[in-house]
Nucleic acid binder design. Structure first.
Length: 888
DNA sequence: CACGTCACG
DNA sequence: ACGTACGTGACGTGT
């Protein structure tokens, strides 16, 4: 009977615990912790894949006021309560298991161990093959010929499982599974509140049990033992030893009503599980559901209609235009289907049941579609989209038209997530689970999908319009609730158009000069490479930190300062300290510099130059948690400037003929923002006197007359000023200045003595963020800081630094965004040829026509300085040049 | 695809 | 005792 049936029993809490400590702290976009659940599922799936069991059950302890934690318990001898980040995951895990139709066994008065022991033994007797899965070695006492104890280990490379049948236990520990109980009786287990015999540890216990087989037999022969401390302890604690053995024994015949047939596996991959995974944002696990027809039951999909003939298309647009008279004020959800800059069609939604996908086909031309869409706004009907900037090429609207961008709104409401696609917005604001683009189309291009996968393509298009339509009002309400509507309407929404303009304009690059620059680098690289190989005596890949580490710290035996997770650190700050030790170090540093410039800048930028001789990078508005803009494809915000060699690359960025570059940057905008926000009179006065701020800080902090401040004092003060903005920590400052933590602490102390209001302000920021759960900028932009509630010191400290930094960095970001919008608008409104083309956080670059230079300089200065009225002046410096090098 | 490294503010 | 400065993006290596 049951010979070929497999039963898997899982120790729920112990696996959750293992998973919790084995994985980094993962959370959903809403801040729900998920690492333990994910780790549990990874182990569960591995076991399901490997064993393909017929039956599976998970046992949980019913009451857990405290919980085992080996790491702390064994060393400290105290129990540590379950961290909140783990506690909140337990009920979710149980819910998930129930959704998977997996038996969850918890009986008041029984520990999970005893449930597992009883069921395993019962199943064994009935002939099942049994696997017991636990993170705890305690269960080894249950191993037999038919009961396999499986202990998963979370390693970097994935999950590995150690398997123990009875003979494996014997092989590894020289004791039988039953004798494991005796061992534990002697050595005890703090985490399980088993006292054991004082002074007897694992080694002694193992030795004694190997020799005497059991505690009973040991005490029968106690007089044979050599006299000594251990023997004394054994004799004095005989009762304790027997009690401990009893406590260590897992019950195998508990009075438990559970029929193994109840644990039969069925329908693990169902829609409920899929939805839970989606909510937990376990994107990688969703792949397991591919073969399952799920969430197609959503009835909105049934209303999606695909149209490819002109008459029908005309009818739809007319239907939309007629909405004006019907008094329907809801914006029309719209999504332009674009692949590689080509318009494939448009999807529209103007009611729960009115979702249309109109394909560009035959008489439905690109012009037809863009005209008809433009007509919607000209008829004063609002639009709602997800990601306006990416669609502006075909949605011909201006700032004055009514268009609501759900993606931007969602970013403001939670800037911590990485994507704001229709499925994300549906999940977060409609409480709906809809298939994502990858679910529907995989990695295929939109155009290919349209041809080969028309049904799924239609769904993708339809969902985009539907979600844009349905979520808009909810997002707008949330913006009002969170006092961010003004931020959205007055800063972010206009910025969409500003950034679009900048992307279209691009920046001109001298292709030949860039090539020449790269060739020069190549010469230097080859020469350095040769010299390095000669010095070291062998060739190797200098770009591989791993190989370089072996050469420097093993072959050359240089002292290594830092280690990374994977080996020796060869970072620049480490190598710089080694410069005196070996001539090869300087060469490696120079080699690194050159290869970086070659690969990222010389070669990297060249591949982005388009037909028009310009680079059209992207400016991303929904990436940075603080509200900054980011730049990609390529990143034009990290073009070298600090080192002369790298700085030279700026000479290849040139204005169009008859134009020049005007580059304006704010002077220490973040420190000025800090002065304003903190209201510290001393700092405000310093800025109103308009003197060298770092020097003033040095003078005041080090009690030195302004004129006598040494360069070292000034640069130290500068580092402290930076530190303040970053959310000061003595460790970080020490690292930066290469001084001890203690010395750094003194600097900080002195700084706060000098500027007491700043200390008060920063403390207040942390307190407020802890209370609210988020930080706020001068213009109301929020950044949630879930780390502030972490029980982990490191994470909490990080949260505190973020609480200090985000309002400062974020307010500066708000200000320059205002300036960008205004500069862009004024240049356009006055019909000037000059145009804004770049933003680098505190700097704006305008490609200005020669005839307009004076006027543009005035506009830039006015708008940048006037972007916000602070208690200190916002100073700017404008420079002119025939390339970006000259203009900085 | 994660990691180390390094470019910028 | 813990082990970091804040915010980004791109490249090359190695699994």
């Amino acid at each position: 009977m049951n010979e070929n049936k497999k039963l898997v029993l899982i120790d729920g809490h112990s696996i959750l615990f293992r998973a919790f400590y084995g994985l980094p702290d993962l959370t959903t976009s809403k801040g729900q912790h998920t690492n333990a659940i994910l780790g549990f599922l990874n182990i569960l799936y591995k076991i399901l894949d490997e064993e393909k069991p017929d039956y599976l059950a998970v046992a949980f302890d019913t009451h857990h006021p405290t919980f085992r934690n080996e790491m702390f318990d064994e060393y400290k001898g105290t129990r540590k309560p379950m961290p909140d980040e783990l506690r909140e995951q337990v009920p979710v895990m149980k819910e998930l298991l129930k959704a998977m139709n997996i038996s969850v066994i918890e009986k008041p008065g029984f520990e999970a161990d005893d449930i597992l022991g009883t069921l395993a033994t019962k199943a064994e007797k009935e002939g099942y093959q049994v696997s017991l899965v636990s993170g705890d070695r305690d269960l080894l006492q249950l191993a037999s010929d038919k009961i396999k104890v499986r202990i998963p280990k979370t390693k970097q490379t994935g999950t590995e499982i150690e398997d123990y049948f009875a003979n494996d236990v014997m092989e590894k520990y020289n004791v039988t599974p039953k004798q494991f109980i005796d061992m534990k009786g002697l050595m005890g287990d703090k985490s399980d509140n088993i006292p054991g015999v004082p002074g007897v540890g694992e080694k002694t216990a193992q030795k004694l049990i190997v020799e005497y087989k059991s505690i009973e037999n040991l005490y029968e022969h106690i007089d044979e033992l050599k006299p000594g401390k251990i023997t004394n302890a054994l004799m004095e604690n005989k009762e304790l030893a027997f009690l401990s053995k009893k406590l260590a024994t897992i019950c195998t015949d508990c009075d438990l009503m559970f029929n193994i047939e109840e644990a039969a596996l069925k329908d693990i991959y169902n829609e409920n599980v899929y939805i839970l995974f989606k909510n937990l944002e376990f994107k990688s696990l969703l792949a397991r559901f591919q073969s399952v027809e799920i969430n197609r039951s959503l009835n909105i999909e049934e209303n999606f209609k695909v149209i490819d003939n002109l008459g029908e298309a005309e009818r739809i647009f007319n239907l939309i235009y007629s909405e004006i008279s019907s008094g329907n004020k809801k914006p029309v959800g719209i999504h332009m289907l674009i692949d590689n800059g080509e318009l494939l069609g448009v999807s529209l939604c103007f009611g729960e049941k009115d979702v249309y996908v109109i394909l560009r086909h035959g008489l439905i031309t690109e012009d037809f579609l863009t005209d008809r869409v433009e007509n919607i706004v000209k008829n004063k009907i609002g639009l709602a989209v997800i990601g306006l900037k990416e669609q502006l090429k075909y949605i011909k609207v201006t700032e004055d038209d009514s268009v609501f961008d759900n993606a931007i709104a969602a970013y403001l409401l939670n800037p911590l997530t990485d994507t704001y696609n229709y499925d994300d917005i549906a999940r977060d604001y409609l409480g709906m689970t809809v298939p994502s683009q990858v679910d529907l189309l995989g990695k295929s291009k939109l155009k290919d999908a349209m041809e080969n996968n028309p049904k799924e393509f239609g769904l993708f298009a339809g969902y985009n319009a539907y979600v844009a339509y349905a979520a808009a009002s909810k997002l707008k309400d949330k913006l009002i609730e969170t006092d961010m509507l003004k931020l959205y309407e007055e800063i972010e929404r206009p910025l969409i158009f500003t950034l679009y303009d900048m992307e279209i304009r691009g920046i001109r690059v001298n292709k030949e000069a860039l090539k020449e620059y790269g060739d020069q680098l190549e010469v230097g690289i080859l020469s350095l490479e040769k010299q390095i190989y000669e010095l070291v005596g062998e060739t190797f890949n200098i770009n591989s930190p791993k190989q370089l580490g072996v050469i420097l710290f093993e072959k050359l035996r240089l002292p290594f300062a830092k280690k990374t997770k994977t080996g020796y650190s060869t970072a620049a700050d480490v190598l710089e300290k080694l410069q005196g030790e070996h001539p090869v170090i300087s060469m490696i540093l120079e080699y690194r510099q050159l290869t970086k410039l070659k690969s990222t800048y010389a070669d990297g930028l060249a591949s982005y130059i388009r037909e028009d001789g310009r680079i059209h990078g992207k400016f991303n508005q929904t990436i940075a948690a603080t509200g900054r803009i980011s730049s990609t494809d390529p990143n034009l915000q990290n073009i070298p400037i600090k080192m002369e060699l790298g700085r030279k690359i700026r000479k290849v960025f040139i204005p169009e003929d008859d134009y020049v570059f005007l580059d304006a940057d704010y002077s220490q905008i973040e420190l000025r923002v800090l002065a304003h926000l903190s209201g510290d009179e001393r700092l405000i006065n310093a800025y109103n006197e308009a003197k060298d701020i770092h020097r003033i800080t040095a003078s005041e902090v080090f009690h030195t007359p302004f004129e006598e401040v040494t360069p070292l004092q000034r640069s130290n003060a500068k580092a402290v000023n930076f530190g303040i903005i970053y959310g000061i920590s003595s460790f970080g400052l020490g690292q930066d200045l290469n001084i001890t933590r203690k010395e750094a602490e003194r600097y900080i102390e002195k700084y706060f003595e000098t500027y007491p209001k700043i200390k008060e302000y920063l403390d207040g920021l942390v307190a407020k963020a802890k209370k609210d759960g988020y930080s706020t900028t001068l213009f109301g932009r929020r950044r949630p800081i879930p780390e502030l509630t972490s029980s982990n010191f490191m994470q909490r400290s990080f949260g505190e630094r973020v609480a200090m930094n985000s309002p400062i960095q974020g307010t500066a970001a708000d200000i320059i965004k205002i300036a960008m919008n205004r500069v862009n608008r004024r240049l356009k409104d006055s019909n000037m040829r000059s145009r804004l083309i770049l933003q680098v956080h505190d700097e704006l670059l305008v490609e200005a026509h020669k005839d307009e230079v004076e006027e543009v300089m005035k506009i830039m200065t006015e708008e940048m300085q006037g972007a916000a009225k602070l208690k200190v002046p916002l100073e700017t410096e404008v420079k002119i040049g025939n390339n970006w090098y000259e203009a900085k």
